[in-house]
């Protein structure tokens, strides 16, 4: 057991996967000689050589497309898209090729590839280097999308993603890279699609993933001081997502808040809210509430971005609103 930063847990998962399986290769922009823009792949080229750890030119469409072809050719490529914002340039390979090959070719083949990519704001990186676009990918049949919130899960989910026969987008939050957690010498595996209960409670359920897990835990601590016991569920995986765990929690709390850093509109929270409303309408004591970013590009200036990013206070307020629902249960336009 050792204290490990989120970024280093990913580094160790890559190293261990490469050690265990010679078909695992890495490529992406500045990942090899320079060790990655966030130092996540540092030391891997030195350890595994230039054939298996490669720098590419700035060619996102080809990085992702080559990963599909390499996966069809028997390799397990793990590629990096430097910022999730740049996934726009890789969308054909992901959406039209990787996601569909297994289905479209009648089950003849699998596409065991992983795209690692960081999302999220907080670095004042501005509108084109901060977005959380995971809902786009979760919308595409054939892709899997995981978003770990801590070093332990980052390690385990990356190992699971690399071992998975389907294309997996592994989303890292930039603000989490330097956060620390315990990583066992022999970490426990985590299955894609399984949530974890980050904090137990009986009054309301807060469903979160990625960096929003920490915000939800802070919110739950603040609420506890008022005598409100919020349960925090860390989804870990959003495509597929652990509906059973969420329903089990809602059966207990009868109140659900879904929070994420991504824009609220048409987001992951919208899907979960709709689904839970369909399946647990009578169990719910209040409508499912969503917390997410306002419907605008991520702004640059410190004050603007601070106001834009949803945080613990927004989650706390949403939990209170949910608990007080009867008092103001009127549809407001």
């Amino acid at each position: 057991m050792a204290e490990t930063r989120y970024g280093m847990a990913i580094n160790r998962a890559l190293a261990d996967a490469m050690q265990a399986d010679s078909s695992v290769i890495l490529f992406g922009e500045d990942i090899a000689a320079a060790g990655g823009p966030f130092a996540v792949t540092r030391g891997l080229q030195a350890k595994f050589g230039p054939e298996r750890v490669r720098d590419t030119p700035i060619s996102e469409a080809t990085i992702a497309g080559a990963a599909v072809g390499a996966a069809l050719g028997g390799l397990k490529p793990v590629v990096e898209i430097m910022f999730m914002d740049f996934i726009t340039l890789a969308m054909d390979a992901l959406v039209n090729q990787a996601a569909k090959a297994h289905f479209m070719f009648g089950g003849q083949c699998s596409v065991p590839m992983v795209v690692r990519t960081p999302h999220g704001g907080g670095l004042n990186a501005g509108p084109q280097h901060s977005q959380c676009l995971e809902a786009w990918l979760a919308h595409v049949p054939g892709l899997k999308v995981v978003v770990p919130s801590n070093p332990t899960d980052a390690y385990a989910l990356l190992r699971a993603a690399i071992e998975d026969p389907d294309p997996v987008v592994f989303v890292e939050n930039k603000a989490l890279y330097s956060t620390k957690g315990e990583l066992a010498d022999v970490p426990q595996p985590v299955a894609i699609g399984r949530a974890s209960i980050a904090r137990s409670g009986s009054d309301a359920t807060i469903v979160v993933y990625g960096a929003s897990v920490a915000a939800a835990l802070n919110a739950a601590a603040a609420l506890a001081a008022e005598g409100i016991a919020a349960e925090v569920i860390d989804l870990r995986s959003i495509q597929p997502w652990d509906e059973r765990a969420v329903l089990a929690s809602v059966a207990k709390t009868r109140r659900l808040i879904v929070a994420h850093e991504a824009v609220t509109a048409f987001g992951v929270g919208a899907e979960i809210a709709a689904r839970v409303s369909e399946l647990a309408f009578v169990e719910l004591a209040a409508p499912v509430l969503r917390v997410g970013a306002d419907f605008m590009p991520v702004p640059f200036a410190r004050a603007l971005e601070r106001e834009y990013l949803p945080g613990a206070a927004d989650i706390t307020a949403a939990v209170r609103r949910c608990l007080d629902w009867k008092a103001n249960a009127r549809i407001k336009p």
Binding site: A66, A70, G73, A93
Partner: peptide, 24 residues
């Protein structure tokens, strides 16, 4: 490796396949 509905879509797939040939 498939006909392709996307003009140019097969190019990076073939490149990745060539990469697999090279690495393996």
């Amino acid at each position: 490796l498939g006909a392709n509905g996307i003009v140019g879509g097969g190019l990076p797939l073939a490149l990745g396949s060539a990469l697999a040939h090279q690495v393996r």
